[in-house]
Structures are given as C-alpha cells and as structure tokens.
Design a protein around this nucleic acid. Sequence first.
DNA 1: AACTTACGTAAGGATCTGCTTACATATCGT
DNA 2: ACGATATGTAAGCAGATCCTTACGTAAGTT
Lengths: 106, 106
Amino acid sequence: MEAALRAIAEPHRRQILRLVWDAELSAGEIASHFDVTRPAVSQHLNVLKEVGLVSERRNGTRRLYRANPQGLAELKAFLDAFWGERLELLKQEAEREERKTREHDD
Amino acid sequence: MEAALRAIAEPHRRQILRLVWDAELSAGEIASHFDVTRPAVSQHLNVLKEVGLVSERRNGTRRLYRANPQGLAELKAFLDAFWGERLELLKQEAEREERKTREHDD
DNA sequence: AACTTACGTAAGGATCTGCTTACATATCGT
DNA sequence: ACGATATGTAAGCAGATCCTTACGTAAGTT
C-alpha cells in the first residue's frame, strides 16, 4: 500500500494509469505516448504491476496491460482513511476555497 | 501539487501530518515521537511546509507547526480528480471486496 | 531455419532522498 | 552579558530512483 502510494507519486506512472484506465493497451502502445524510451516505460509498468495497480495479460508476442480496479480501490481506501477523521474540516476548507474562487462573479 | 503528493509518499511525513492534524506542536515535541534524529524531522517539516501541507508559527524560541487545511484540501482534490471518472468502478470494486471480506460471517 | 516484431532485462550513470554529525542562530532566564 | 534551551542549516554519505544503451528472449512470418 505504502508502495502503491509511492508508485503514483511518479508523473509518468500516473499517466500510464490513466491510459490503461479503461482500455487494455500493449506495452508498445503505451510507450508511444511518452518521450522516454520504451525500456523506461517497461520498468514503470513493472513497478505498477508489482504494487498491484495494473495487471498484465500475454497475447502472442504482446503484453497487454490494464488498470487493476482492486489495487486502485485499495489505494483509494488507504488515502481515504488517511484524510479520515479530518474529512469534515477538509470539506469546509474546500467550500471556503470554492467561495473564494467565485468571488469574481459578484 | 505534484510535490505535495510526493511529500505524503514518505511514511515519516504522513505520521508528522497526523500528529499536527489537530494539535499545534513544537518541532521538539514532534521529533520526540520518532526514532530518527531531530534534524531529520526538521528537514521533513521543511518539506511539508514548502509544499503547503503544514504552517509554521514562531513563539519565542519555539516553532509551532500545524497541518494546513487548505493545502490538504487541495491535495485531496487533486487525488479525487485523479480517481475521477473511474470512481464508480472503484466503488463497485470496494463493495466487492467488502463482500469478500465478510464471507466468513456465513 | 532465418528474419522480424514486440517486448523484458542487465548494467551503469546522474540525480534525488533520507539520514547522520557537527555547527550556527535565536530567544529566554539569571 | 552568559549560559541554557530550542531549533535550523551545512556537509556529506548510502541507498533509491529514473533514465539510457546494449543485449536477451519469445512468438509470429516467410
């Protein structure tokens, strides 16, 4: 869980997650969206797989990746628990910002 | 925001945040909760301050820290946006796990 | 079998991170 | 002014991280 949080702290990995969020993509297709080399993306995919945020399926010479909803749900639950008790206060704060943002509408 | 996410990926910093979550504590009081040295904690406090997750107030020779609700709210909003579209699916997955966990009750 | 395609893995380098020890600074009490 | 207390800052180190280039491997193609 700890590890999953560290995993999504990396921008490229968050972007990868969004790519395979609702589409199953091959390693190559994923890599084509980035400016870093294909091996770099492969390593990111490995990290994401090891922390349970994506799953891999082999099809012929390809490896198809997709987000793993269970892993994502667990991570989200961990973070929700972290906000946890203070959630009320955070909500109030969010509303306060909201109002501040909308001040220009007056 | 990016930086704030990286900040909470570190366990000690998450623990610090929980400590100053609803109490204003001095650097020394915070450090006393950890096995790492006081300077290490001081550096963590600096990181948290720079990314806007805690605020610092000086009182005499002391520096008092507390969580910054606005920074926390912004980070939470960022993460909520990240789950975003898939939120529905994540909820379903969470419920599925819930059921699985409770299977032993039968 | 030989070639191509799609990929992972190995090795190494630059930079970042979290920590330590030593030192600097600022405020308070006397 | 002086010593004690509370704290940050500097320097440096070991290990992690993210990247690159080179190489290995496995499945399809001819």
